[in-house]
Every structure is written in structure tokens, then in C-alpha cells.
């Protein structure tokens, strides 16, 4: 890979790794993820004069990557629907059974805690490691759909169409993803920090 905008080889490697991780989580396919990252980097290379610095360059490659991913997801929709028919709305994902009692109230030890100052959290390198661990724990479809919604900020209609889900199923999957991620962050970070 050619160096860009004064980035060191190490920084380029890091960027590539971040992009690959992002693409793999979205596409669930290493080959397709590699292709998408490669195309995004090549696309950005053609226009590299346009960037004043590293930040602008990174924003740009990630914007290209995001478009490649959305294209891929759209192309893959047919297959995805078949996979969806195997009923993985119910995949392992129900955290609710472990945090609520029979009446649907928070179990005493499971009631949400105060998370403190988000600005502080955003600055902690250590926190982001925990965040990634928690993201990785989301079962396949929960992770993908969550990232489409909260990372790429697609609207819900677009996600349903792309992944081949009904709105009701999407609501359920997003709920489970948020419950699981919330619990993981609370246990591994916020509770530990108190």
C-alpha cells in the first residue's frame, strides 16, 4: 500500500485493520470484506490529492467503505433472506430472561446502575477495548443490525429491506442487541469502575 498524507506504514496498517474489522462485522464474510476494503482504499488513492490531512483522508475512505458495504449487502439480500428463514431472530439472544423476574421487573442485582460521565468514557482507550469485546459478543445478526443502525445510522426501513427482515423482527433484534451490549458494558466496565 502506498503511504498517504504523511501516514506511516504502521498507521496505514492500523487503518486497514480497522476497516477490515468494520467490513467483516457488517458482511460476515472475510473475502467480501477484503474486497470492499481494497476497493475503498483504491478509490481513495485516486483522489488523494483532495485531502488536506489524515483525518480527512480517513473520513473519506470510511465513507467509501460504507458505500461498498451497503452495495454488498444489497446484492446479498437474496441469500440473506434464505438464511433469515432459518429463524435466527431467536438466536441465543435473549438476555431479558436473566435480568427480569417472573413479573417482568428488574432482578435486584440487575437493576441498571448510573454510568457516570460519558465524556470521560469516550476518552478512555481502555474503555474502547471493552466496547469491542462487548460488540464481538453480539450474535451474528444482532451485531450486524445494531451496527447498521447505530454506527452507519441507516434508517429502519432501509435495514429491513437490506437484510430482509420485517419491522417487528428488526425491533426485536435491536432490543436484544441493546440489552446484551448494555449488560456487557455495565458488567465489564461501568460496574467495575465504581
Amino acid at each position: 500500500m502506498q503511504p498517504i498524507q504523511g501516514m506511516t506504514d504502521r498507521e496505514m496498517d492500523d487503518l486497514r485493520r480497522q476497516m477490515l474489522r468494520f467490513a467483516q462485522q457488517q458482511l460476515q464474510n472475510d473475502g467480501l470484506a477484503e474486497d470492499a476494503v481494497q476497493e475503498a482504499l483504491l478509490g481513495a488513492l485516486r483522489n488523494r490529492e483532495a485531502f488536506a490531512g489524515k483525518a480527512a483522508y480517513k473520513t473519506w475512505v470510511f465513507a467509501i467503505l460504507k458505500n461498498k458495504i451497503v452495495d454488498q449487502l444489497r446484492q446479498g439480500r437474496r441469500f440473506e433472506s434464505i438464511e433469515g428463514a432459518s429463524g435466527d431472530v431467536d438466536e441465543e439472544g435473549e438476555v431479558a430472561a436473566h435480568v427480569f423476574d417472573q413479573q417482568g421487573h428488574w432482578l435486584q442485582d440487575e437493576s441498571p446502575r448510573r454510568w457516570g460521565n460519558p465524556e470521560e468514557t469516550l476518552k478512555s482507550t481502555q474503555f474502547w477495548k471493552v466496547f469491542e469485546i462487548c460488540l464481538d459478543q453480539l450474535p451474528g445478526k444482532q451485531g450486524r443490525v445494531f451496527m447498521m443502525r447505530e454506527f452507519i445510522e441507516l434508517d429502519t426501513e432501509e435495514i429491513c429491506e437490506t437484510v430482509g427482515l420485517s419491522m417487528t423482527n428488526l425491533n426485536v433484534i435491536l432490543y436484544r442487541a441493546r440489552m446484551r451490549l448494555r449488560l456487557c458494558l455495565e458488567q465489564r466496565w461501568f460496574a467495575a469502575a465504581q
Binding site: G6, L15, Q18, G53, A56, L122, E150, F151
Partner: peptide
């Protein structure tokens, strides 16, 4: 959103 932003911009010192 912070995570995405971080992935796009971390290591940046120049601009």
C-alpha cells in the same frame, strides 16, 4: 458514534 469517529480519526495528529 464515538467509536466510529474514533476508528476514522484516531492516530491523527496533523490536521
Amino acid at each position: 458514534r464515538g467509536y466510529v469517529k474514533l476508528n476514522r480519526e484516531d492516530n491523527d495528529v496533523s490536521s
